[in-house]
């Protein structure tokens, strides 16, 4: 897709998002002036998203007039190479978060690092394994031990019982 196509599509999508927020802001909230008291709780989100809508429409208007560089650019928004590297990265991050709900963050981050270092970066197995083991171990002691913030473990929780005895 060309930059100018994406520019228009994005402005339209953002305009729809603004409308959705405006509708949501009326949900059980007063968006009008309460006499003697000032604005209701819905005023702020409602009118701000209304203004958001206006700013999106201004972008659309500028697009039709062709006054901005983005509305005239016929360059590709993303080259195939960019799509590949960004697409794989975002998909890997998505799977990383999804896997966190099942096997916990420590194991999914290990898999993510192995994938990224070995497959994407084509680094040696030695470097890959050292980093993908050292990172979760370091984070475990830092977050659970020092900060006392337990990271999500989901079904992998029982595996950590011996380590809890160690740090607490």
């Amino acid at each position: 897709m060309k930059v100018r196509t994406v520019e228009l599509l994005m402005a339209l999508v953002l305009a729809l998002v603004s409308i959705a927020i405006m509708i949501k802001a009326t949900d059980g909230l007063s968006i009008s002036w309460v006499p003697g008291k000032g604005p209701g709780s819905g005023v702020w989100p409602f009118w701000l998203s209304a203004a958001m809508l206006v700013s999106c429409l201004m972008v659309v208007y500028q697009w039709f007039r062709g006054t901005t560089p983005e509305s005239r650019s016929d360059e590709l928004f993303m080259t195939p190479e960019t799509v590949r590297i960004i697409g794989i990265t975002v998909a890997a991050l998505f799977l990383l978060l999804l896997a966190t709900h099942v096997i916990g963050l420590y194991f999914s981050m290990m898999l993510f690092l192995i994938f990224y270092l070995r497959v994407m970066g084509r680094h040696t197995w030695l470097l890959t394994l050292v980093l993908s083991l050292a990172t979760p171990i370091f984070l475990f002691f830092f977050f659970e031990g020092a900060l006392v913030i337990p990271l999500p473990k989901a079904y992998s929780e029982p595996l950590f019982y011996p380590l809890y005895d160690f740090i607490y």
């Binding site: 990265t89 963050l105 990224y116 994407m120 980093l131 984070l139 990271l151």
Partner: peptide
């Protein structure tokens, strides 16, 4: 950068 990027992603997530 392929070493740095995944490490920073992990840092962002935690």
């Amino acid at each position: 950068f392929t070493i740095l990027a995944p490490m920073i992603f992990i840092l962002c997530i935690v």
